[in-house]
């Protein structure tokens, strides 16, 4: 039996649509199975008092991004250029760049 091109295209599109819907079901299933390890990771963070993901281990301010300070990009000498590739993938910590442009420590009154 020779199928019409529109039937073939219809079958292909429906198959793709079903595959796309299957990703939603798969996401539910994977989410449930990976929940246990997520809970274990959360417990480890609490126990070891960790602050960052070990996603970029190349430089200290990318390894511990949340703890980076204003001077991190100039760690070698003033005006030194950023030379770690992951530094260009990541924005600086938000507390250094938020609209106020002042970190909490700079809000503090200086002792007289």
């Amino acid at each position: 039996m020779n199928l019409r091109p529109s039937t073939l295209a219809g079958i292909a599109l429906v198959a793709l649509l079903l595959a796309a819907l299957a990703t939603l079901i798969d996401a539910q299933r994977l989410g449930a199975t990976r929940m246990a390890s997520l809970t274990a990771r959360t417990a480890l963070v609490a126990r070891l008092e960790l602050t960052d993901l070990s996603l970029f281990t190349e430089a200290r301010y990318t390894r511990h991004r949340a703890l980076a300070d204003l001077h991190s990009p100039f760690q070698d000498h003033p005006f030194s250029l950023e030379h770690f590739p992951s530094g260009s993938l990541l924005p600086p910590p938000t507390h250094l760049t938020q609209a106020r442009h002042e970190a909490l420590d700079r809000e503090a009154a200086l002792p007289r």
Partner: peptide, 10 residues
């Protein structure tokens, strides 16, 4: 644990 690598790899 291997599944904690994202926070503990290094």
């Amino acid at each position: 644990p291997a599944d904690s690598e994202l926070i503990s790899a290094d």
